[in-house]
C-alpha cells in the first residue's frame, strides 16, 4: 500500500489552502466536475469511479471519457488521486491488497470489471509506463520481447526480431542500441531506460498507453525526447499522462483534467484550462498558489 498515493484527505495538505476545501469536500463542496467530461467516440468511458483502500478514500465519483488518438493530461497536487485513477484503467489496483474499485469503466463499450474479461487481455490493450524506469534485468532485446512472448504475438524468431526492431524504432531508441541488443537493459542511461520501457509497452501493440509521471526521474534533455515521442505516439494511440509539470501538460496534451483531493474538479481542452480555468481550485493550482 505504501507504493500508492493513499486517499487524498490526509496526505500533504499544504496547510494554508488545503484545509478549506477538505472540509468543503466532506459536505460535497467540490461538487460536479466543471467542463466537458465526455468526448465523441471515446476509447475509455468512466462513470462514477470510486476507489478506496481499507477505510481511506482514493478517489470518489470520477466520471471521465478518454478519446482516441489524443493525449489526456492529469494534473493536481500529490495525493489528489490522479495516479489512482490511472491505475484503475488497466486494473493495476487489483494488485494492491485492500483496494476496492466501484463504478463503471468501459473500454470500447465493454466493462473492464466484467468477470468474462481476461485481465491479461485488458493489460495487453492498455499498456503502462511507470514513474521510475523499470527495465527487467535482461538484455535490451529480451526486455522488448517479453510482452510479445507473453502474448504469443510472434510465430517465428524473425517475426519477433521485427517486433523488437520496430518497437525500438518507434520509441526512438533503435539507433542508440542496435549494436548492443544483447547488453543488459539496466546498463542504459535513465532516459534510454524509459524509452526502452516505452518500446516494451508498444511491442504488445496496445490501444492505450498510460504514463505515470514518465519524466519525473529524467533530466530536461531526456524529458524533451520523451515529449517528442509522445507527440509521435499520439498518432496511433490514446495516451493518458499523469504529470506534476504543468508546462509538460500544456506541451503534450489536448485535454487536461485537474484532480483535487480525490475528486475530478475540472476537465477541458488544454488551451482552455490553462488560459481560462472555470473552477477556483483549478485557477489556484495553475497560477501556482498551491500544489
Amino acid at each position: 500500500m505504501s507504493s500508492v498515493e493513499q486517499g487524498g484527505i490526509n496526505l500533504k495538505p499544504s496547510g494554508r489552502v488545503a484545509a478549506a476545501p477538505s472540509t468543503a469536500l466532506e459536505e460535497g463542496g467540490i461538487g460536479q466536475t466543471v467542463g466537458q467530461t465526455t468526448v465523441q467516440d471515446p476509447i475509455f468511458s468512466c462513470r462514477k469511479v470510486h476507489v478506496s483502500y481499507g477505510n481511506k478514500h482514493g478517489i470518489r465519483d470520477v466520471s471521465l471519457d478518454i478519446g482516441k488518438r489524443q493525449v489526456l493530461a492529469m494534473i493536481g497536487p500529490s495525493g489528489c488521486g490522479k495516479s489512482t485513477f490511472l491505475r484503475c484503467l488497466n486494473r493495476m489496483n487489483d494488485t494492491i491488497p485492500g483496494a476496492r474499485v466501484t463504478g463503471e469503466i468501459l473500454l470500447e463499450g465493454r466493462d473492464i470489471h466484467d468477470r468474462q474479461l481476461d485481465v491479461v487481455q485488458l493489460r495487453a490493450r492498455v499498456g503502462m509506463v511507470f514513474q521510475k524506469p523499470n527495465p527487467f534485468p535482461k538484455s535490451i532485446y529480451e526486455n522488448v520481447a517479453y510482452g510479445p512472448r507473453l502474448h504469443g504475438l510472434a510465430r517465428s524468431r524473425a517475426q519477433l526480431d521485427d517486433i523488437v526492431c520496430s518497437s525500438l524504432q518507434r520509441a526512438g531508441l533503435w539507433d542508440e542500441v542496435k549494436d548492443r541488443l544483447a547488453q543488459a537493459g539496466t546498463g542504459l542511461s535513465g532516459g534510454q531506460q524509459q524509452r526502452l520501457c516505452i518500446a516494451r509497452t508498444i511491442a504488445v501493440q496496445p490501444e492505450v498507453i498510460l504514463m505515470d509521471e514518465p519524466c519525473s526521474a529524467l533530466d530536461p534533455v531526456a524529458t524533451a525526447r520523451i515529449e517528442d515521442l509522445i507527440d509521435e505516439l499520439q498518432e496511433s494511440y490514446a495516451i493518458v499522462i499523469v504529470t506534476h509539470s504543468m508546462q509538460q501538460a500544456a506541451r503534450v496534451s489536448q485535454r487536461t483534467a485537474y484532480f483535487h483531493l480525490g475528486a475530478l474538479v475540472e476537465v477541458g481542452e488544454t488551451d482552455r484550462i490553462f488560459t481560462n480555468p472555470r473552477h477556483k481550485l483549478t485557477e489556484d493550482y495553475i497560477t501556482g498558489r498551491f500544489g
Binding site: N90, M92, T95, V119, V120, Q121, L122, R123, A124, G127, M128, F130, N134, P135, F136, Y146, G147, L150, H151, C197, R200, T201, V204
Partner: peptide, 8 residues
C-alpha cells in the same frame, strides 16, 4: 509491476 502491467 512492469511485468504485471504487460499482462503477466
Amino acid at each position: 509491476d512492469a511485468s504485471t502491467a504487460l499482462g503477466a
